[in-house]
Simulated scan of single mutants.
Amino acid sequence: MATITQRTTHFTLRFLAQPCTVNFGGKVHGGTVMSWIDQAGYACSSGWSQRYCVTAYVGGIRFVRPIKIGDVVEVEARLAYTGDTSMNIAVEVRSGDLKGGGLEKTTECAIVMVLVDADGKPVAVEPFHPTDDAGKTLAAEVKKRLVGR
């Protein structure tokens, strides 16, 4: 069994889209995709804080294209920056056919996770501020998605 001993700033889920996730149009249900986003956000935020976190907000969700049953799905969550008690995360969902071609973006959004204590009260999170250009760009994109929340 692997042990996570250091803080992580990203987490990726990979799996196959299963028939039990189908909507009336024959594609993966949007609510299922949102559940996957929440799971990846939890894993990313808990990887950084190394404690229990809860979803406070999902914003700017954009469904770009549908996911087909049988596609390989990749849900990538990346920590963009932290607040006092929150972790602001960019999530991108990609999918594609295993028999050829690459993965294409299907959904993107920003998610805010909050570090909480045993009573569910927010507590201070270890600060994370990007230092490289790619990280700063990601932080700016997440901030733009979260405007108006």
Rank of each mutant, 00 (worst) to 15 (best):
Q18D: 08
G59S: 04
T106V: 09
A77R: 01
V123R: 02
G100S: 07
S45P: 04
G120L: 13
A80K: 01
P127F: 10
Y81V: 07
G41S: 09
G60E: 02
G26F: 01
Y57W: 13
E92V: 14
V33L: 12
P130F: 01
T137S: 14
I111Y: 06
T9E: 10
I111H: 08
A43C: 06
A118S: 10
T137D: 15
A43Y: 08
R14N: 10
G26T: 00
T55E: 04
Y52R: 08
D117E: 03
D132G: 12
A2V: 07
V54M: 01
G41A: 06
G25Y: 07
V22A: 12
R7T: 03
T21A: 15
E92P: 12
V72P: 14
S35F: 14
G96H: 08
Q50E: 10
L79G: 04
A56N: 02
D119K: 09
K27C: 11
F24L: 08
G102K: 10
T107V: 13
F15L: 07
V64C: 14
A124P: 00
M113W: 02
G25N: 10
G120W: 01
I67Y: 06
A90R: 03
M87N: 01
F11Q: 05
Y52S: 06
A77W: 03
A17E: 11
C44E: 00
Y42H: 13
R149D: 05
G59K: 04
Q50N: 13
G100H: 06
W36K: 03
G41V: 00
V64A: 11
H129T: 15
R51D: 02
V54R: 01
G59I: 00
R78A: 11
K68F: 12
